[in-house]
Amino acid sequence: MKRLKLPLTALLFFIMEGSFSNLLAGDIFGGDKIIVPRFIMILIAFITIYGTRRNGMIYGFILGLMYDVVYTEILGVYMFMLPFFAYLIAKIMRILQSNLLVTILTSLLFITFLEVIVYQINILIGFAHIDFNTFWKSRLVPTLLLNLAFLVVFSYPLKRMIEKQKLESDGE
């Protein structure tokens, strides 16, 4: 059961993104703002930093593949980006200290990277028509605020859970 904790959390985050975005799409925050929950990106950043790089990349690949198949129906984008980001996060963390504040900032930085790259890809394939200024105001800032709020609440329990799991698997 303990071994299943992390995969189940990952599944929960995955489902939450889908149903949250339907709630957030409503009028609560005004229809013109688009808020993208990036809980999976946060989870992958935490797994990479507090767990192992290998795990981060595996979770990134599987969750990215699921994201592509279930949500966007454009295969490849997240499946490629998420493990790649896990790899980059591991590289960056060699230089930085891994305290909670740095982890939160790193997560937000990579959410920004993800948003910008996905935006560029969507311009290429003809789905996005907004300019960078609109993108920045109506998508990026609200998205970062929501995910910051999520990080403030869940970063500590998430860190504890992943560290515990790592200790257990190291002990075996």
Binding site: S19, S21, P37, Y71, E73, N122
Partner: peptide, 11 residues
């Protein structure tokens, strides 16, 4: 039961 979270393609 769900919506495409990245909201580029509205599904």
């Amino acid at each position: 039961i769900g919506r495409n979270p990245d909201r580029w393609n509205e599904l």
